[in-house]
Design a protein around this nucleic acid. Sequence first.
RNA 1: CGGGAGGUAGUUCAGCCCGGUAGAAUACGUGGUUUGGGACCACGGGGUCGCAGGUUCGAAUCCUGUCCUCCCGACCA
Length: 493
Amino acid sequence: MSKEITSREQDYSQWYNDLVIKGGLADYSAVRGCMVIKPHGYALWENMRDQMDRMFKETGHQNAYFPLFVPKSFLEKEEGHAEGFAKECAVVTHYRLKADTTSKGKLIVDPEAKLEEELIIRPTSEAIIWNTYKDWIQSYRDLPILINQWANVVRWEMRTRLFLRTAEFLWQEGHTAHATKEEAVEEAEKMLEVYATFAEQYMALPVIRGLKTESERFAGAEDTYCIEALMQDGKALQAGTSHFLGQNFAKAFDVKFLNKDNQQEYVWATSWGTSTRLIGALVMAHSDDDGLILPPKIAPLQVVIVPISNKDAEAQKKINDKAQQLIKELKAANVSVKFDDNDSNRPGWKFAEYEMKGVPVRIALGARDIENNVAEVVRRDTKAKNSVSLDGLTNYILNLLNEIQEAMFNKAKAYQEQHTTKVDSWDEFEKTLDEKAGFVYAHWDGTAETEEAIKEKTKATIRCIPLNAEQENGKCILTGKPSKQRVLFARAY
RNA sequence: CGGGAGGUAGUUCAGCCCGGUAGAAUACGUGGUUUGGGACCACGGGGUCGCAGGUUCGAAUCCUGUCCUCCCGACCA
């Protein structure tokens, strides 16, 4: 990342937008606040989705699908939930258009076709799902219900940004119902760990696991667990959340079950979600000025082979034959590989193009290499070039992909550690945020007022109260009141 | 909703101050030469200058209105 970019927020925004657009992930669309996810970006999402889906299934969940439309009255039922989302809902009021008799070729909303009850385009699905669970649950034998849905949701945000905050986005949302509080809490914590594992092992993105403060909690939740990641501009990004919903939705939708003692009880609930925002996290955490750098485990394309064309037909044939053989071997080893022999672009153009797209490994093959029985192998993360023997090249590539995956995580981890600071005074706190940015661990007196005052003064928020953190007596940096544990502060997206 | 910058070719933009034939780069098409870090030559297609009024012999350019986009704030479980 260039120095100029760190210095100004606007430049960083520009840098990020360029990476997303030139990296071929997505583009702005004709619809305000919505983006077009292009094939490269969608393939990346599919890889992430498939991996997470496997992990959900391994933890006993099943997929299902619920309606896009939520009747307004459903959304109203859980008060906190309704308030939290009311300001950003798209609303369907009519079901028909008709020709405008005063203006040829134009359509108007048919006033005759007004819906009796407005439909809200889901900003999240708790309401419609709990309305359904009511019919599914009678006895403790019906529990737990462990369901996940892959879907799109709409939140009418005032300001949007590619992947990070779009009006419509793709996500998964898990919704579970349990017989006991303990089981529900365990579920929420288990899914947080699934997210953290996915982020760290697949996205090469180190995260901090924690609990949100009351003011940052999900609308309708008792507790919100989250994973927080650090971006290269020193700002934090919430990368996934898992909520313990208590009995709030069960009470709102009257979902009771008969327990073993033949007594009616409200069901305990969780919900958890991650979205295409993770792609934004990936871009901001790993990329450099030459483009995206994608972790091998989720990169849509892991290896690209660029032939260095040659006028000599025989030499050219040798290059192509060798490339085909390589492709066969790599594919057999489950590596996704592309041979770009498109003649309309020269090698240099291709090098730059695949760097922009973040392909982890590039192999260049020219007549000179064939003569020496080698290939030029370049890794995207460090740009290191190596001349590698063609014998055993497939094994070399397999090892290299693993090495890149690991190196990317280590680099991001080191960055996070370097940009994590413990502070004990207000001056130190402000100075760190302004001059160093990143995560800041500090003591807080536990009140919402102090949290708000700190946000007001510095724009920094409490990202989370870290889980399993050491207990330590200290004084709140703002009020000086006693505190037992440091919390994680940062300026955030 | 406040502050700022913009809307001209598919894209990025120049031209506007000082009114007079609609421009560049890039992308695209055809042909050729090329190919080890974003090639070159030739020819070609492509724009009612955001929209609506006004001033003028004449408006991308000046005036008024209006719509939209982007960035920064506000907002954002």
